[in-house]
Every structure is written in C-alpha cells, then in structure tokens.
C-alpha cells in the first residue's frame, strides 16, 4: 500500500486480517452496548485508516457496514448462531464509525458512533411484492396486536405476570392487512392469574426477560392471533450498567486521536 507519508496515517486493505479483527472487536462492542433492538453483524469494511500512536500501538479508524440479525440484544444466543435479517424480511443496515486501538495484541474501542436504516420499501417490494413492511410502533394495529398477544401469553401462563418492556419490530402486510410484531416482556412480582391492576406490578429485581413474536392475521370474517414467547434465564443484577453507545449524541472524541496520534 502506498505509504501516505506526511498524512500521518497508512492506508491498508479493508480485508487485511488485522483490520478484520479490529472490525469484529468493534461490532462486539456495539452489541454489548446496544440498549434495545437487535444485534448487528459485520457486513463490510467500507474504509480504514491506520494511525500510529505514540509511544506504541496503532488506531484503526474504521467505517463499517453492519446488518441487523434476528437476535434481540437481550437474547443470549451466540452471535454466530443469529441469522441475518433477509431482504424479504425488510432488512436493516447499520453505518458505524469506530476508532479501535490495537496495543499488545489487544483491540480496544475508543470511539463509536452508529446509526441504522431500514431498507427502502421499494427495494423490499422488488424482491417480494406481498411481504410485510416495517411500520411505526404507534400504529394502531401494532398496539392492538401487542396488547392482544401479551394478554394471551399471560392468560396461558401460570407463573409471573409479564409486562411489556419494548416493542422491537413491527410489520404490516398489504391488504388484507396482517400485523407481525416482536416485543420484549419482563416478569413482575404479580402472578399471571392474580394481576388485577398491572400498574401495581413491578419488574423483579433480578430481571427475567422474554422475547415474543406475535401475529394478527385477518381472515375473511375473523382474525387469528398467534403468539410465541421465549423466556430467558434470570439476569443477575448489574453492578453498574454498561454505558450505552449513544447513537444520537456525538461521542466524546478522545482529544482528536488522529492529530494527537500523529
């Protein structure tokens, strides 16, 4: 690669093994700090610059392209076992900027900023004219489907009463409109049968989350509700919750690494 002398950084191949290691460490960091939604997987290294750090180490300045997987951030499934959300399912991509320090063979993320975008409706229509499209969480059919599914789940459940924590994904199909939702619930200190006033039910100190998928399919003169929930193991109470990757606020840059690094 041409030594970009004087620029303070070196350009290397985006598929260089070290770059790939840095990119994988960055995506791990992202998934550990996402507070909601679905985990992401590395799809492509768009750009990379390698800055030399005094007295030692290098910083990889990366632009990465990620794709959403079907695993929720609370789902303990190993990322390698998570499927990538396909185009026909209305895929979501992430665009991330990372600075990853490599020192003594270790990769450490020192700057992260990401935002995600769903595929366009036109592109989904191209591959699947009748597939569902992502829709707003406060769409009335979404709210109705989530409430009906949660009530049905609690009615079938003879343990704790579960409360809604997050609507993670919602899609409507073209008419006859059917609604597909994915949402997170958590166990409370009420029993499912005894919860007369859910507002008085509190989440357990030792959180127990569940991930639910539900659909409300319109039939000719009827509608069919189906719901399936996976309840995860109880989570030990966090000593101090991990800092979030704040996708909105500009992250605090560590004293402009490129300049200081040069």
């Amino acid at each position: 690669a041409p030594h970009a002398m004087g620029l303070g950084f070196r350009e290397v191949a985006c598929d260089d093994p070290d770059v790939e290691q840095a990119a994988l460490a960055a995506v791990d960091y992202l998934n550990q700090h996402l507070q909601n939604g679905f985990r992401h997987i590395l799809n492509q290294v768009d750009k990379v610059k390698v800055w030399f750090r005094r007295p030692f180490g290098v910083v990889f300045e990366l632009e990465l392209d990620t794709l959403e997987t079907t695993c929720h951030v609370l789902d303990p499934t190993p990322l390698a076992n998570c499927s990538v959300r396909q185009l026909v399912e209305h895929a979501v991509e992430g665009d991330c900027d990372f600075h990853v320090l490599k020192q003594d063979g270790q990769f450490t993320v020192i700057h992260a900023q990401c935002h995600s975008n769903p595929d366009s409706a036109e592109d989904v229509r191209k591959v699947c004219p009748n597939c569902g499209l992502l829709t707003s969480f406060n769409d009335s059919s979404v709210v109705n489907t989530v409430n009906a599914a949660l009530n049905a789940f609690n009615a079938q459940n003879n343990g704790s009463y579960f409360k809604l924590v997050e609507i993670s994904r919602a899609q409507n199909t073209p008419p006859p409109v059917s609604t597909f939702v994915e949402f997170v619930v958590a166990a409370t200190d009420c029993t499912a049968q005894g919860a007369t006033d859910p507002a008085k039910c509190n989440l357990l100190a030792e959180k127990q989350y569940g991930f639910c998928k539900a659909s409300l399919v319109k039939k000719l003169d009827d509608e069919e509700l189906s719901v399936a929930c996976r309840v995860f193991q109880k989570q030990p109470q966090p000593a101090n919750p991990a800092p979030a990757v704040d996708q909105a606020a500009p992250p605090v840059p560590p004293a402009n690494p490129p300049a200081s690094l040069v």
């Binding site: 191949a13 598929d15 799809n43 492509q44 768009d46 794709l67 185009l87 592109d123």
Partner: peptide, 27 residues
C-alpha cells in the same frame, strides 16, 4: 534490432484497497 514493446508498460492496476468484501448483501 528494434523490439516493439507493447503499450507503454501498463501499470499494475492499483490494487483496490477498499471497500472490502461484502459478507452478506448490500442494501
């Protein structure tokens, strides 16, 4: 003896460094 070389030594096409390979698909 004049040896007709081919076109001026075509420079190796610059190895494209980035973007890297697409692991799944592009949106």
């Amino acid at each position: 003896k004049v040896v007709h070389s081919g076109p001026a030594g075509a420079a190796d096409p610059a190895v494209r460094l980035c973007p890297g390979r697409v692991r799944y698909f592009r949106i």
